[in-house]
Design a protein around this nucleic acid. Structure first.
Length: 271
DNA sequence: ATAGGGTTAG
């Protein structure tokens, strides 16, 4: 904003790409009202905002949890005949999924195709993740297969989302075969993957298997975090394995996984 | 100048 004021005194006239950079910067700083105001200012100068500016704003409003404003901006974009891109739809679909507005998502997904935009891996993953979180595992699986049919290569995030969805639905066998596929493809198993598997195993009471996976990840050099430990420790408590619980707690503390101070860990572990 | 990858008890 200061930069703009400075420029108004000079002969240089800011163009759309200059405004875009400023809007983007304001979004990064979470100054969304200022960013939106700038779009109005642009208009007064006879410069129309473009799809990149609108996409950045829509994404930022969703991330702030203001989905109604984000949808308003999308409408505005449409009124101004600014053509959305795959990136716009990705922000939109992901935003809707994460705001729990899953029922609006299939409409936009369809509209996207109607516009001739091809959903890419990021769009599919956002949708798969949203469906898995909203109890629509079958839909998610269908989309995953659709990706394969289209010869798109689902990446680690896509696999992880579907695997996690299966775990949340207690389908351990499917989850582990997805893990095997990831290994086959050559993806390194990372903390979110191990964390998700361990959580899923604990949920169904297979705490020993969870414990084995913890050992496995450490062996492979994947550093477990506090949540992974607490997941197993708390399950040990539930099942009455107090010795194992304490042992693991000590191991966690020894590893310095205290994330700040010891009190915070103590308060998170059920006693 | 734009886009994602969860924290997970009950």
């Amino acid at each position: 904003m200061d930069l703009l004021k400075e420029m108004s005194g000079t002969s240089t006239k800011p163009d759309v790409s200059f405004y875009g950079t400023v809007v983007w910067g304001l979004c990064e700083q979470n100054k969304l009202e200022e960013a939106k105001a700038l779009v109005g200012e642009m208009k007064k100068c006879g410069i129309e905002a473009n799809h990149i500016i609108y996409t950045a704003l829509i994404d930022a409003y969703f991330k702030r949890g203001n989905e109604s404003e984000a949808l308003k901006l999308l409408e505005q974009m449409q009124d101004l005949r600014i053509v959305p891109t795959v990136v716009t739809y990705c922000a939109l679909i992901d935003g809707l999924c994460k705001s729990g507005l899953i029922d609006k998502v299939s409409y936009f997904f369809k509209r996207m195709s109607d516009m001739g935009l091809q959903p890419n891996v990021l769009v599919y993953t956002a949708l798969i993740d949203g469906l898995c979180r909203n109890n629509c595992l079958e839909e998610a699986e269908k989309l995953f297969d659709e990706m394969l049919i289209k010869r798109m290569a689902p990446d680690r995030a896509a696999y992880t989302s579907l695997m996690d969805g299966n775990l949340k639905h207690g389908k351990l066998h499917e989850a582990f075969s997805l893990r095997d596929k990831m290994v086959e493809i050559g993806f390194e198993l990372d903390l979110p993957i191990y964390g998700s598997l361990i959580w899923g195993l604990c949920k169904v009471g297979q705490v020993q298997e969870a414990r084995n996976l913890l050992s496995e990840m450490i062996e492979k050099g994947v550093f477990p975090d506090e949540a992974v430990y607490l997941c197993i420790i708390n399950k040990y408590h539930d099942l009455g394995y107090m010795t194992e619980a304490n042992e693991l707690r000590n191991e966690m503390i020894k590893r310095g996984l205290v994330n700040g101070n010891k009190d915070s860990v103590e308060s998170n572990v059920r006693t």
